[in-house]
Measured scan of single mutants.
Amino acid sequence: EDYYQILGVPRNASQKEIKKAYYQLAKKYHPDTNKDDPKAKEKFSQLAEAYEVLSDEVKRKQYDA
């Protein structure tokens, strides 16, 4: 799945936009606030993985290549 789609940001998003999108979605899908939703944990880990790659310039360049 596309990391940009997961975070809901365009491919040319700035680091600030990526961070903002991640924090909004992380708050929304955090397992502690969605105890009754088994998919929230999965969504949250996808968000974390996408953010880890896109927030790191080197990893992001490799991902975009």
Score class of each variant (00 low, 15 high):
1 E>A: 11
28 K>T: 09
65 A>G: 10
28 K>D: 10
39 K>E: 12
3 Y>L: 10
28 K>G: 07
40 A>E: 04
5 Q>V: 11
16 K>G: 15
62 Q>L: 09
24 Q>A: 13
25 L>Y: 04
6 I>P: 00
14 S>F: 03
54 L>C: 02
54 L>V: 02
34 N>H: 13
46 Q>Y: 09
16 K>S: 15
60 R>V: 01
41 K>L: 14
52 E>T: 09
58 V>A: 15
21 A>W: 03
17 E>C: 09
47 L>C: 06
44 F>K: 03
40 A>P: 04
17 E>R: 08
29 Y>G: 04
37 D>W: 07
45 S>A: 14
14 S>H: 07
10 P>E: 13
58 V>T: 11
8 G>A: 07
31 P>K: 10
64 D>V: 01
35 K>L: 12
38 P>G: 08
44 F>Q: 05
26 A>R: 14
61 K>W: 04
24 Q>H: 14
63 Y>K: 03
16 K>D: 15
17 E>M: 13
47 L>T: 03
29 Y>V: 07
16 K>V: 14
55 S>L: 04
45 S>Y: 12
12 N>S: 12
53 V>L: 04
43 K>S: 06
34 N>P: 06
53 V>D: 01
25 L>R: 06
53 V>M: 04
65 A>R: 07
16 K>T: 15
15 Q>M: 12
65 A>E: 15
2 D>Q: 04
50 A>N: 00
50 A>P: 01
5 Q>P: 01
57 E>I: 10
35 K>Q: 14
63 Y>G: 02
14 S>K: 06
45 S>M: 14
5 Q>Y: 13
52 E>F: 07
20 K>D: 15
2 D>V: 03
39 K>H: 14
42 E>N: 11
43 K>V: 10
51 Y>V: 03
57 E>M: 08
15 Q>S: 11
33 T>G: 14
4 Y>I: 00
16 K>A: 14
61 K>A: 14
24 Q>W: 13
23 Y>T: 15
19 K>L: 14
28 K>C: 10
51 Y>L: 04
48 A>E: 14
20 K>S: 13
54 L>T: 01
43 K>Y: 11
61 K>D: 10
48 A>V: 14
55 S>K: 09
20 K>A: 14
51 Y>S: 01
16 K>P: 08
24 Q>C: 10
45 S>F: 13
14 S>I: 06
4 Y>M: 00
26 A>L: 14
59 K>C: 05
1 E>Q: 13
54 L>S: 00
57 E>S: 08
7 L>I: 05
55 S>A: 07
15 Q>F: 14
34 N>E: 08
54 L>G: 00
53 V>N: 04
27 K>D: 15
39 K>T: 13
47 L>W: 04
21 A>G: 04
10 P>F: 05
60 R>C: 02
